[in-house]
Design a protein around this nucleic acid. Structure first.
Lengths: 341, 341
DNA sequence: GGTTAGCACTCTATGGCCAGGAGTGCTAAG
DNA sequence: CTTAGCACTCCTGGCCATAGAGTGCTAACC
């Protein structure tokens, strides 16, 4: 199935031309703009072959060619140049990590924003699962009569909080309860914390069973949060600038599917059989709603857990740039979250 | 400028018809669908008067009428029925406050989602400013060598965190620093905390000056955050379902203005000369980018501070429903944040 | 005087039609 | 194997005619 040199060159030219212009590309254009040393007729023949072998498609009988999924796949695997970052891209990415006060969620949101802005596609980050995370500290603060604020900080800088119901108690008593929770649960993997907390604390302090139950509930919800809470999506507007989303119905359906049906998680899940990073092109991800978009993502390390950063755009995407940007973010985020930066 | 009974009835009919169908409405339709007891010719005459006095507009010479900003204004001030919530709306709103583990940010985000879903417009919440807030506790936790996690909990259940640089110290020392910060700053209005912290702590503990500086920076950034961080927007997709946003350029420009130029804050700011709730119709808010949309909002109490919840939709909006939903949310959010719920 | 029927007029939206242009596939010559 | 030439296909955009909705005006009516 390997292509000979010339076919590959032509395929690459067609794809890059199409990526740039967005319209079907004909043999004349290729002959003129790319100096391949052959005439348009020859290119025409080669393009016919490429169509027959499935690398190119034709929207209709007498129009130019458009890359097929298989064509894009071959391109990203074999033909695509590895490029670096432009000065602007570099600066934009840099800025995410240079703000003075940084909380992890803001950094992730900023990353999404910058990914989207620099590429003009839709950016996303999937935060780390909490299953592999240990927490540093748990705090319980009086809020108002009958309400307490539960704060849990993990070892990777994520802080989660929620409001729970507490029996009336004074500040000291609450501090005592917090201290107790801290002593028994610090440094434990959140995944196993449920059972342990339950057993341990139920015996020692049945007076605070209600509180403990709620703490356990909250810990469970942190772990099991199936992605909704962990996924940050941004820059949908940028997608509307792409010529393929001038059709408002298409655009709406896609955005709906992303917002409501969690297609991004689905794609990442279906991809995750192995690689740290990847590209999912069009129908490669099985969902109809994303049959004509591509996703480029990479996995960054967050302590023992991991997160993903990526972008979603039309199949006609500047893959070289997308990969460069996503990869760079992956490196920087891994560094940002690493213990020894 | 008051309208006589019949003109008011016709204006109301025109507006409600237009809200429902979205197309310019003619005299025939009004005569047939609304039993006003007069013929289409009479209605035609009245409509001509209403146009002359500025309550109605005509897109072109021989088309039906469309309400003007002035018309909508009169409608919402004088004609609009006060309606309650349907069972479904009630249930949807209820669901926001019934989840077991609630953190304040999730509640606000959920509120945005529900506002948007129930109305099919774009929903938003502007969280409370931190200037009037006092904080409950400050924590400092070791994260990795040279990094610490600063966590600040306010008395209204908001928890903010950030990563700061700390000199190498052991856990006990860090706990001591946290304790010191707590002792000196607990219960103070965040607005004035900067100076006080600075003076007080610089003397007592110059060894920790770097940390204190960063804490102060962070507190300052919490207070001064000009709305970006406080504004939650959601449901932009729903706007794309509205017939007035079938034009993709319009839609894109609007969403861009919302995302990048903060028009929602601008509108709320320009409105805030007084009222707790309000409706800004079309060109009433001075910005071109929102000249053909309306905003309905209400202010809820959060301790001594306040937040706003609202929605943005086409001028041709179901104002009665919008007001009902926004008002209900305002009541519930105020209750949710009140000290004694 | 207010109301209504009738009618001419205006303007938009829709669909068909035609010409122009881009691109292909095929054939035959180099 | 490559290339020039040519007939053919199909999309695109402009143009025109028609249909339809709605208005404003006038004249008749109560």
């Amino acid at each position: 199935m390997a292509l000979d040199e010339r076919k590959a060159r032509i395929l690459r030219a067609v794809i890059e031309e199409h990526i740039e212009t967005g319209i079907p590309v004909g043999s004349r254009i290729i002959a003129r703009r790319y100096s391949l040393g052959v005439s348009s007729a020859t290119i025409r023949n080669e393009m016919a072959d490429l169509e027959e072998t499935g690398y190119l498609d034709k929207p209709h009988t007498s129009s130019g060619r458009v890359p097929s999924d298989k064509g894009y796949r071959f391109y990203v695997d074999e033909l695509m140049p590895r490029r670096g970052l432009t000065r602007e891209e570099h600066a934009a990415i840099e800025s995410v990590f240079r703000s003075k006060v940084m909380d992890v969620v803001s950094v992730l949101k900023e990353a999404v924003r910058v990914v989207s802005e620099t590429t003009c596609y839709l950016g996303f980050v999937l935060g780390p699962e909490f299953a592999d995370v240990t927490y540093q500290a748990i705090h319980l603060l009086p809020l108002s009569a009958g309400k307490g604020l539960l704060v849990i900080a993990t070892d990777i800088g994520f802080v989660e909080s929620c409001i729970i119901e507490v029996p009336v108690m004074n500040r000291e008593e609450m501090a005592y309860v917090a201290g107790m929770l801290n002593r028994h649960l610090t440094g434990i993997n959140l995944d196993g914390v449920g059972d342990r907390a339950h057993r341990l604390l139920h015996e020692e302090a049945s007076r605070y069973a209600e509180i403990i139950d709620q703490v356990v509930d909250f810990l469970r919800s942190m772990v099991s949060d199936a992605g909704e809470e962990r996924l940050y999506v941004g820059g949908a507007v940028n997608l509307l600038r792409q010529p393929e989303f001038q059709d408002i119905d298409r655009a709406r359906e896609l955005l709906l599917a992303i917002e409501r049906e969690g297609v991004i998680q689905s794609i990442l899940d279906s991809q995750s059989h192995a690689q740290d990073s990847g590209i999912a092109i069009g129908a490669e991800n099985r969902l109809d709603s994303v049959a004509d978009v591509s996703v480029v993502y990479a996995t960054f390390q967050v302590g023992k857990s991991e997160g993903k950063i990526g972008l979603l755009g039309p199949k006609r995407m500047d893959y070289a740039r997308a990969v460069a940007i996503v990869r760079d973010f992956e490196r920087r985020l891994s560094r940002f979250f690493s213990q020894d930066n």
